Amino acid sequence: MMRILLFLGTNLAVILVASITLRLLGVDAYLSQNGMNMTGLLIFCFIFGMAGSVVSLFISKWMAKRSTGTVVIETPSNATEKWLLDTVAELARDAGIKTPEVGIFPAQQSNAFATGWKKDDALVAVSAGLLNRMKPEEIRAVLAHEIGHVANGDMVTLALIQGVLNTFVMFFARVVAQVVDSFLRKDDNGGLGFFGYFAVVIVAEIVFGLIASAIVAWFSRFREYRADAAGASLAGSGAMINALARLKAETQMPDQMPDTLTAFAITTGQSRRLMEKLFASHPPLDERIRALKEAAYRQ
């Protein structure tokens, strides 16, 4: 549950910082004094709502390397690293994208992630535990899954969706505050006042932010199925299924992935509670395995 709280907290923090900025710049006061200009409000919310997502996207590789301790393989120092580079290059060629940077991060749990601001400037990294315990064909399937994320443009799409949702969270929170202020106002007196208006905005943003986070999580789960399908296409359905089964067996191990990269990892364990399922970035591994088996049966 702590992972879910951190995920929601990060997203809401972006919105709240943008809201404080709007308040300090006098945008809220101007709109309140001069009537609700929907077009102007939407433009301001779009600028601030998208800013955090776009900046995060552009620095995603840098953040990933620093937060996970990923070491990019420039020149392979052993046979395993050379195989890793050659395999990623082969999979990227088959997927029709430029070969991403390849790295290894020091986590004992088998895991991997992909990030980057565009398809031809990405990073694919695997954990040391994955390299130590998985079979080569299973590692190849995991790499294919991550290449699938890159080829599908999932990093860009996720950032854009988050930015758009942030825009509407900020927008509708101010509409709600304006409606409440108008309801309480009599002639030129009453109303929420400066601090009351801001408090209503913050509460509304938290409520709408939770809804937006659930939508982002739903999309994240959807794209995991797409990446699994891409991994099965590139590395074979059997290998992809075996890799997910191996990951399932390790779900009880301590998770070494930073919460900021949860949505980009290949696994985050099994979610059983309702709230965890609603805000989980990944579907349960059993469901992912079942989807792959059903797709293989239909072929």
Rank of each mutant, 00 (worst) to 15 (best):
L261T: 09
R288Q: 09
V164S: 11
G40R: 10
V169C: 08
A239L: 04
H149E: 01
T10E: 09
L123H: 06
L5D: 04
A112V: 00
M240L: 14
P283W: 08
A245V: 09
V176W: 00
D228K: 07
F168S: 07
S77H: 10
T115R: 04
A295T: 05
G96I: 11
V156D: 07
A291H: 13
V126N: 04
R223E: 03
N166C: 10
L192K: 06
P283V: 01
I139K: 02
N242D: 15
L25D: 10
S110D: 11
F183V: 14
V179I: 15
R140G: 01
I202W: 06
F183W: 14
H145T: 00
N78M: 10
M50N: 11
P136M: 01
P100M: 06
I211R: 08
E276I: 04
V176S: 06
Y30N: 11
H282C: 00
A245R: 12
L85A: 09
F264S: 12
D121L: 10
L143C: 01
T21G: 14
F264T: 08
V54A: 12
R66M: 04
I241Q: 05
R246Y: 11
E294P: 08
L42E: 06
A296K: 09
G52T: 11
L5E: 03
F219W: 15
I161A: 07
G231S: 05
T268Y: 08
Q299G: 14
M253W: 08
L247P: 05
G231T: 06
I73F: 05
K293P: 04
D286L: 02
D228H: 04
S67K: 11
T75G: 00
S60N: 03
T260A: 15
D188A: 12
V14D: 13
R3V: 04
